[in-house]
Design a binder for these strands. Structure first.
Lengths: 163, 163
DNA sequence: CCAATTTCAGAGTAACTGATATCG
DNA sequence: CCGATATCAGTTACTCTGAAATTG
């Protein structure tokens, strides 16, 4: 039949991101199993190291999931002593989370393994392009967080779309 | 102004991809509900339009999922008459899938909605960078498909990592 | 017999919706 | 009373591992 020439139209970005995510998920799951960590657990630990004191509600908004989903991750981490939660002094309802020493330790051991994975999968992408890719994806992430129907609000107010 | 030195540590790419994927998932799920399509169903229909005649095994490898997972998507699509499967003339075991007219029709109606979503989330990314991002992510996807432990550059032998 | 494909059955992860309680 | 937060309970979406049958 006709040789080649049928690969000119590229796949959609949403498709490629989905596949990449699925590949990353499989790799991470296998590597994190050694420490009994699930992917959202590892991710949450990482976020809490960078942003200590975030509440469940704040964490869930950052992850674009419902607070009912995040609470389960947090509960599991707290139960195992990897995360500690303390009442906010200014608001008795809010519980602010932070890493325990155990949490920090397990993260420091898992990190190099995940970093190596990221390096391996980026092997063919020149360093200069990596910055561009990361910046573009962060921009997409922010769009998705603030809502796709919102106007191009330059002031990054975390608006939640009214129901 | 100042070069802003406190934001020097950027989040990891795997993290950003995970969040973007989660955002996309939520958007797509809501939009596809109108046609009773799940995300893997819509994705599979799209792939089959571009690559008619792929078998379940081929589709599953492309999607980086096990054939046992893909078969359920395919079964659901076939049951609803959106996909047809026919025995390969050269190999009685292989079933090659393709879109039915109904499948093509539903896809043509869902497409603009998903395209609009992609446009909206890419609103802040200049067109020239989009090509770079897509190319980089495809490269990452290929890395993940062929296996992260494979050596670089040599000839493209699609080696399956033996267990 | 072996390798690849298909497919059934059960399990697990990670998200969801709904509802309830508390705090300011 | 309202809005935000926390959290219990049940459900859905999607993928996995295991096992069996078929075909070349």
């Amino acid at each position: 039949m006709s040789p080649a020439a049928d690969d000119e139209d590229a796949p959609a970005l949403v498709y490629v991101i989905g596949r990449v995510n699925q590949g990353i998920r499989r790799e991470m799951q296998g590597r994190l199993k050694e420490w009994g960590l699930t992917i959202p657990e590892y991710t949450t630990l990482s976020v809490l190291r960078r942003r200590p004191g975030l509440s469940n509600a704040q964490l869930s908004r950052r992850s674009m999931i419902m607070p009912q989903s995040m609470i389960e991750v947090l509960a599991s981490l707290e139960e195992r002593g990897l995360v500690r939660r303390e009442v906010d002094p200014d608001h008795g309802r809010i519980l602010r989370a932070e890493l325990t020493d155990d949490g920090r330790a397990i993260l420091e051991r898992a990190d190099p393994v995940i970093d190596a994975m990221e390096d391996a999968m980026l092997a063919d992408v020149p360093a200069r392009q990596r910055a561009t890719v990361l910046k573009a994806l962060i921009s997409v992430m922010n769009r998705l967080t603030t809502g796709l129907t919102e106007e191009a609000g330059v002031t990054g107010r975390a608006t939640r779309s009214p129901r």
